[in-house]
């Protein structure tokens, strides 16, 4: 479903992604971990072309993402994205946040879009907040709205870019629970996170990145119990020790 072949990316002199090879199958949950600055978020953002790649090929749903002629908006409709800082539209009510893209991009009529929005709000457990503004919600609630907003486009793939990093600790659980449910329902997910518990429990495979490279790809049991690479061991020692 997502296929990286020898993908390289440079920001000027800075080599962010080095020889990335990764293929992700439909229904798979891939969790990307690694120290900050290792290129995890960049890798994720290439998938829907929020970042361009310098060389190599990247195909998503059989579309060559780097192709200038590719209909990027069509591709993006099939890829939901959830950001670290939620990025809800502050001038719109929760329900309007969710219905905007389905109405404007897919042409869904308003009553139907609102119905879908309510369904997903119910799913993420905040059906009573439809007419609130984002600023009236807690961080955890905002992030769940953001997930509902992405799901309302009925995407084939969901990307999560450190979805719990900006949350107060007591709100992390409610967001991870929603993500677990999604994973169980068979959604194809790529998740960049520092939540090792989530990776261990939910991931089909863990991708460990360091300095722009994929160092190790393993099933979670293997990655957490006996990582093959020295760098992965050092990383796990640091993050798991507290």
């Amino acid at each position: 479903m997502i296929e990286f072949r020898q993908v390289e990316k440079h920001y000027g002199d800075f080599h962010v992604l080095k020889g990335i090879d990764l293929s992700i199958a439909q229904g798979e949950v891939v969790v990307v971990v690694g120290p900050s600055g290792s290129g995890k978020s960049t890798l994720l953002r290439c998938i829907n072309r929020l970042e361009g790649i310098t060389s190599g090929t990247l195909t998503v749903n059989e579309v060559n993402v780097a192709d200038k002629k590719a209909d990027i908006n069509k591709l993006r409709r099939e890829i939901g994205m959830v950001f670290q800082h939620f990025n809800l539209y502050p001038h719109m009510k929760v329900v309007d946040n969710i219905t905007l893209a389905p109405m404007k991009s897919l042409g869904v009529p308003k009553p139907q879009a609102v119905e879908t929005a309510e369904m997903y709000l119910e799913k993420v457990g905040i059906s009573d907040k439809a007419s609130a503004f984002p600023s009236q919600l807690s961080g955890g609630q905002q992030q769940r709205v953001a997930i509902a907003r992405a799901l309302a486009m009925k995407p084939k793939i969901m990307l999560f870019d450190e979805p719990t990093s900006a949350l107060d600790p007591e709100m992390v659980g409610e967001v991870l629970d929603v993500m677990k449910t999604l994973a169980q329902e068979g959604m194809t997910m790529v998740v960049v996170t520092h939540e090792m518990g989530f990776a261990r429990e939910v991931a089909d495979r863990v991708v460990f990145m360091d300095k722009g490279q994929i160092v190790e790809i393993s099933p979670p049991e293997e990655f957490f119990e006996q990582p093959r690479e020295e760098r992965a061991r050092l990383f796990l020692n640091r993050v798991l020790r507290h």
């Binding site: 409709r77 539209y89 905007l100 893209a101 907003r149």
Partner: peptide
């Protein structure tokens, strides 16, 4: 992030 969220949703 506002533009990114909107563009990522296909707008």
């Amino acid at each position: 992030g506002q533009t990114e969220a909107a563009r990522a949703s296909g707008l």
